[in-house]
Each structure stands twice: as C-alpha cells, then as structure tokens.
C-alpha cells in the first residue's frame, strides 16, 4: 500500500511540476507577447502590404540590400512565412540565397519582435525565460540576438550565392542572373 501511495504521489508530482512550468510561461510570457502582437498587427494593417513590394523591387540590386535590408523589412512587415514570398522580385539565381537569409530573419528578430514568428518563438522564449528566472534582464539577449542575426544572416545569404553556383555545376543547369521583365 505504501508503495502504491508513493507511486501515485510521484506520478502526480510529474504533472504538478509540468503545470508549474506552464503557469510560469503563461503568466510571465503571454501578457507581454499579447500586447506586442496587438500593437504590431495593428501597425502592419495600417501601413499595408503593398508598400513593402515597392521596397522589394529596389532591393534586388546589391547583396547588402538583398540579404540584410529586404529580409529584415519583409520579416518585420509580413512575418513567417509570407516574408519568404518577397523572393519573387529576385532573379532566379538569387532566390535560394534570399530564402536562406529571410528564413533566418524569421527567427533572430524574435526577441524584440515576437509577432514575426509566434509559432516558433519558444526557442527564444524558453532560453530567455531561464535568464529571467535568475533575476537578470533578458533585453541584452534579445538585442544581441537581433544584431548578431544581422551579420550572421547576411553571411548565410551571401554564402548561398556560392553554394548555388556549386550545385548548378553539379546538376548541370544554369539559373538566370537577371530579372525577367515580363510579369
């Protein structure tokens, strides 16, 4: 009998621990995220999707605009996954590189702009919450995540130019380097 009681309380203990973790996240994370989401959703609705397309067309000309400015603006304005659709303004050859950068931008900005990728935000929040529980401020982490992301995502996008050229040779195809004019 004693054994059964012990077993039952250990069994319940597992779910109590899980519940505590859940409550910690719900009360510590959800309220702030919710307010941020409301504000960001409203800003994006007021600015409108169309304007970003105008920016996209300008941004295809050089690597810095292609893999740093445009992916960030697209992620901020359109979120995951629609930010990836801005690659349609690139010549075919640069589309994989844009994807490589933009998909990372849907993660590295999560600390400050959670509206970009709320479905996958627990990567950041899980770690940030651990830091907060130690009594430390998570803001430096969020800021550094974004800033290092700028550099790292640019490198990842630019490096893809070279791997694409390599794979092109492997598969014996040549992708267009210029933007097609017809729509």
């Amino acid at each position: 009998m004693e054994f059964l009681v012990k077993f039952a309380s250990a069994f319940m203990g597992v779910f109590q621990l899980g519940g505590e973790q859940f409550m910690g996240w719900v009360t510590g994370i959800i309220p702030t995220i919710l307010m941020l989401l409301v504000m960001m959703n409203a800003i994006i609705a007021l600015i409108g999707d169309q304007r970003i397309e105008a920016i996209a067309k300008v941004c295809t000309s050089n690597p810095l605009l292609r893999y740093l400015v445009l992916p960030w603006v697209s992620a901020f304005m359109l979120g995951n996954p629609m930010a990836l659709s801005m690659g349609k303004f690139m010549p075919e050859f640069y589309k994989p590189s844009y994807y490589a950068s933009a998909s990372y931008h849907c993660h590295t900005n999560s600390g400050i702009f959670p509206h970009i990728n709320p479905a996958e935000i627990l990567i950041y929040l899980g770690i940030a919450n651990g830091v907060t529980q130690l009594g430390l401020d998570a803001t430096p982490l969020a800021l550094r995540y974004m800033l290092v992301g700028f550099i790292a995502n640019f490198i990842s996008g630019f490096a893809t130019d070279f791997t694409t050229a390599f794979v092109e040779k492997q598969q014996g195809v040549k992708l267009s380097r210029t933007l097609k004019t017809h729509h």
Partner: peptide, 10 residues
C-alpha cells in the same frame, strides 16, 4: 531543384 540542395549546403 538547385535551391533545396544549395540552402542545405550553405
């Protein structure tokens, strides 16, 4: 076809 491999490499 190229992009799937290329992005995984990069």
């Amino acid at each position: 076809e190229v992009g799937v491999v290329s992005v995984m490499y990069s």
